[in-house]
Amino acid sequence: MPDMKFKLKIWRQKNEKTKGSFVSYDLDNVSPDMSFLEMLDALNKRLVESGKEPVAFDHDCREGICGSCGMYINGLPHGPVPGLTTCHLAMRYFNDGDSITIEPWRAKAFPVIKDLIVDRSAFDRIQVAGGFISVTAGAASEANAILITKTKSDEAFDSAICIGCGACVASCKNASAMLFVSAKISQFALLPQGHVEAKARVRAMVQEMDRQGFGNCSNTGACEARCPKQIKLTNIARLNREYYKAY
């Protein structure tokens, strides 16, 4: 396949305190098999070799599971293909000569640290507030002692696969973190192991979510549409139910 050319417009910001701006770059010799991050690697190689600072972005596993990467590409978190993280987005999904605007996630709760890197520690704080089942190592009973129907267990899995990338917040017009929080609440609500602490958990996690400055859910469904792991809106409904039950 022939090489491709792109016009990139990338948000550059030195650190949290300074103001940022968009910088344009032309990039050619992009192979359609390259991932979006590899395309940026190619740009960065060029920048570094000429002594300039490369575009900073979070990334690690590059196979769609660690949740590190995430960019707002042409108006869409993780780019145009639903169900993919940025690291899995191949350049063949773009057209030769396309202009691509790349922005960091924007939310009050996710301040920009540098270029395309944002601080997502708010997510960790929500999980610390209650995203766990309190069982001490050694205290567990035999794994098959509690039977769980396959349907329930599979459903819990579908909620549990959230990678914590923040695309739900990035795509929500209100920068709400409800999908993220509801995925964890749902996982534990669907499993008997999670029931003991269900009430305390949902109260604590919702309270922490509010404290972090995320917006409110207005059921637009943007999060579901842009979640790379296709976590469903039904989780939010379940979170709501769990919350009412907790009072």
Binding site: K9, W11, F22, Y72, N74, G75, L76, P77, P82, T101, E103, R106, A107, K108, A109, V112, S171, K173, N174, A175, S176, G213, F214, G215, N216, S218, N219, T220, G221, A222, A225, R226
Partner: peptide
């Protein structure tokens, strides 16, 4: 709620959100 929601994203995106949602909801 709306004011809170606006405050939750103090810096807007350059390219407006194209996420697939019903226009009515927005």
């Amino acid at each position: 709620l709306q004011i809170q929601n606006w405050l939750s994203r103090p810096v807007r995106y350059e390219v407006s959100n194209r996420a697939e949602t019903s226009a009515f909801s927005r």
